[in-house]
Design a protein around this nucleic acid. Structure first.
Lengths: 311, 311
DNA sequence: CTGTTAGCGCATTCAA
DNA sequence: TTGAATGCGCTAACAG
């Protein structure tokens, strides 16, 4: 029966058909747990997010999660979701409940990742560590492009706002911003941080508005900061984009909800999830495959907040 | 060894200790798959979302998911995430990979839910079907309260906007709105639908702005519609809240991002996830327990969009 | 209280 | 090509 239904091992076509027809007559469904015990493979992949990302509301990982699940499903795999707590190995790993891991975000220490990697294939999404497979968005290049776009409008005093530079993604975006300005001989040092707090946007903007003169253009590290910047600017009497132009990063739901709508840099998160998943499935099939690092390109969508849109 | 480490079955304290110390000296970790095969319990729970909710970005289910995972983890359970495709039983169910199911949202047919229920414990979250355990927010009561709040300001022409009334949650909110108005002898029929589309807010508002006279107050079925309503009103020359007051539903991230900030009705989604999970664990322990239906209360947070906030 | 044994449902040998 | 036996790592029943 096993040979007939699994397709592995030699078996006559006639017997196979006979067994198959009886099987679905009886409504037979294979027991995946028994299969796992015999093969030592579970056909499931763990997805880990650091607990710091709770609450997940508004987190961009949702869309990644969704694609990971979809791709796994296509391959007949299941997704076990796990939140990394206390920097310990997730239970799904210690209990060998999954065949491989996709780790989302930058909140994993190199040490932890290597401990995980020593037990099973690991792919990092939105993160990158030497020697480990990863799929990362081009944060530096995207932010560089955002700043260049503003400079093409003639802006020379361009600021940058972010929640916190201790986040590697935001830091990379700041670096891209800085590179672009310095390449034009301008100052890339007008950086404003709000801190990890709900009113981070307001704190950063208070700092920005205290400078003199205020920048005429702004790169925001994400849509949330851009939205907060616009609100603060308008309240203070500045017009956006006429007095201060804004380019944002992420191009999420917020980008088209606020007024003016945001010109924003996008990293294709669906692609990030899909790529990471396909890679992790490859690694399950070929564990010795040398590590690959994908860098995802960005797209810039022009809307109203940068001031060059004819609409 | 099994008796020593599992704690079940009689065993001498001395032998238990001896086995324990050897076990962790050897770094022994139980194999959960073998355990599952022997006990016919996997210590994992499936969470199912209908594929219609893809993409999940901005979906309120993220926070529910998060709490489900947290509560399951506390109980030593794992979460298997699954997207319901083609109205078929999820693989995690047919393959008996999970001990029970939490279903999020209203997109499950009664028939499907009963088929699932016949195979394992099921708890519905944000949904309710007779005879099946469920945790549901008080959409009717919450919307009634929103409308009452506006009427207490003296409004008599109160409208309602939603993406689509074919969604049971939005329909329930409409009913609450209607009840409140009719209880005061007012018309609860100023309902505007935008349809399931990205610019649903604009479509609905175009319809609303075509009425004469325009309502002086608005109940929005969610924050997204409220944000769109405010944008459309301001563009047309109305002031919010002076000319048109708005009360929203959900109180999510958007509520504090848009200007003016939204007065909004909140259903505690974290509580929804936690309750559903605790209930599903109860059902695993006591499968014959009669079905329970939880109705979660709502809270109304007063901000600027309804016009009665002194700030 | 403790040692032994028979499955759980499958994959994979080895014989036939 | 096919039938029968063995074992994956654990639990639970049974004997001692």
């Amino acid at each position: 029966v096993s040979r007939a239904l699994s397709g592995k091992g030699r078996i006559g076509e006639a017997t196979r058909e006979r067994i198959r027809s009886v099987a679905d007559e009886l409504g037979y469904r294979p027991n995946v747990v028994a299969h796992s015990l015999a093969t030592n493979r579970t056909r499931s992949v763990g997805v880990v997010i650091h607990e710091r990302h709770r609450p997940f509301e508004g987190s961009f990982y949702n869309i990644v999660l969704e694609m990971v699940e979809a791709e796994l499903d296509r391959a007949g795999y299941q997704m076990v979701f796990s939140c990394l707590r206390r920097a310990a190995l997730p239970r799904c790993v210690t209990e060998r409940r999954v065949d491989a891991l996709v780790c989302l975000g930058t909140d994993f220490s190199d040490d932890l990742v290597r401990r995980l990697r020593s037990r099973m294939p690991v792919v990092l999404a939105d993160n990158s560590i030497p020697g480990v497979d990863s799929v990362l968005g081009d944060n530096v290049g995207g932010a560089r492009r955002a700043a260049e776009h503003l400079m093409q409008h003639g802006h020379t005093r361009v600021g940058f706002i972010a929640e916190t530079l201790s986040d590697p993604s935001f830091r990379a975006r700041m670096e891209g911003y800085g590179q672009a300005l310095e390449a034009q001989g301008l100052s890339g040092g007008m950086v404003f941080e709000g801190g990890r707090r709900r009113d981070s946007d307001r704190v950063a903007m208070r700092r920005l508005l205290a400078t003199n003169p205020v920048p005429t253009a702004l790169v925001a590290a994400n849509d949330f900061m851009a939205a907060g910047a616009i609100t603060a600017l308008v309240k203070t009497g500045y017009r956006v984009p006429q007095d201060v132009a804004v380019v944002s990063f992420d191009d999420g739901e917020l980008a088209t909800v606020v007024e003016p709508q945001l010109t924003s840099v996008r990293i294709d998160r669906a692609e990030m999830g899909a790529l990471a998943t396909r890679r992790v499935l490859e690694l399950i099939a070929a564990p010795e495959s040398p590590p690959l690092q994908y860098l995802l390109p960005t797209t810039l969508t022009i809307r109203a907040s940068c001031g060059c849109n004819p609409d």
